[in-house]
Write a protein that binds this DNA or RNA. Structure first.
Lengths: 103, 103
DNA sequence: TTGACAGGTAGGAAATCACCTACATATCAT
DNA sequence: ATGATATGTAGGTGATTTCCTACCTGTCAA
């Protein structure tokens, strides 16, 4: 998986941006309004998300509409799969232990 | 979710470490052997993983056995849940579109 | 055409990161 | 007690990140 998906999501600002885009595509100013930081900084965060493939932009007049892309998130989920198996095993082992000792 | 789980996993070295620990607990030297970088640097990466709660250490003689912890990974999976719903919708929409146009 | 608006880019400063080597600490074996 | 082993910490350096304030470009409206 592209290393930059994790790196892109490592910033709370960028996670907030992806969360906002979950409700639907939005222009930059609309997104920037949710932050106290300057608009150019938000633009830079969007560039990181773009480079990671997490969002795409579509020009619409003088606006650029940003849209969330599902593929990298799905890859992240796939990366997580073996760990999911791992924690289920751990949970099952814990339950088994409790059953043995307590009753 | 703790911001540092994403940040901790943003490094390929640390993702490799967690992958190694998926096979079971290991001492530091064993882990460090998989990398070309110096052992102290690996130690520092382990500290980042520890601070994120992704691993715990257990002293055993002069070794420290590192073990993967399931909780933060499960939190990551939970964070992903709404996006999972999102990409399923997108996929369904795409299929619907294909059905309409092609046949 | 001129001005306002949307948004990207440049350049710079402060903070953080990722390495390194040297060193400190604790444990085990002799 | 002494030396070897396992590992963390200190301190430094260069690269990267994250923010800022200008500034540039393209589009719409009057």
């Amino acid at each position: 998986m592209s290393t930059d998906v994790f790196a892109a999501l490592a910033s709370p600002v960028r996670r907030e941006l992806t969360a906002l885009l979950l409700d639907g595509p939005r222009p930059v100013n609309d997104l920037a309004a949710h932050f106290t930081m300057s608009r150019p900084s938000v633009s830079e965060h969007l560039k990181v998300l773009r480079d990671a493939g997490l969002v795409t932009e579509q020009r619409h007049g003088r606006q650029r509409i940003y849209r969330l892309e599902p593929a990298p998130l799905r890859e992240l989920s796939e990366w997580l799969t073996p760990y999911e198996r791992f924690w289920r095993e751990r949970l099952a082992a814990l339950r088994e232990l409790l059953d043995e000792d307590d009753l």
